[in-house]
Design a protein around this nucleic acid. Structure first.
Length: 117
DNA sequence: CGTATGACGAGCC
DNA sequence: AGGCTCGCCATAC
């Protein structure tokens, strides 16, 4: 497929339902690049403001926001998630067993990506 | 075309 | 437990 990895990330992240979160590594694995977690973060950082990508629904493997604590980005991401009903515990962590997104089947991934090439 | 850059993650200490 | 190192890899320059 001709789409750059970044675009694949955007396509998949748009499938995360409100109130659920996925991890960088999970997105990377679902796209068939299990070692590209950092690149997923890079892609989200570069998210075009024009398109509606729910970037706030992607957190790190520990269930925490990956911005420097107290930074504008961190406050914004947490606020957006809480507005969707996601709960942070006393350690600023999200229980992925509760709010973690199940992801998509390989077949669904293929269809999703093929649709946009 | 080589080097740098992380919104990561697993493992080691 | 919590911090630190080191590998990773698509892009940017």
């Amino acid at each position: 497929m001709k789409d750059a990895f970044f675009d694949q990330v955007y396509q998949l992240v748009q499938r995360i339902p409100p109130g659920k979160v996925a991890t960088y590594g999970q997105i990377a694995r679902l796209l068939g690049q299990p070692r590209a977690a950092r690149t997923v973060g890079w892609a989200l950082r570069a998210t075009p403001e024009g398109i509606a990508v729910p970037w706030q629904r992607v957190v790190n493997a520990r269930g925490t926001v990956s911005f420097r604590p107290g930074s504008p980005g961190a406050v914004l991401q947490r606020g957006l998630l809480e507005d969707e009903g996601v709960v942070f515990d006393e350690n600023d962590r999200i229980d992925l067993r509760v709010y973690g997104w199940a992801g998509l089947d390989p077949v669904e991934i293929e269809q999703l990506l093929r649709r946009n090439m």
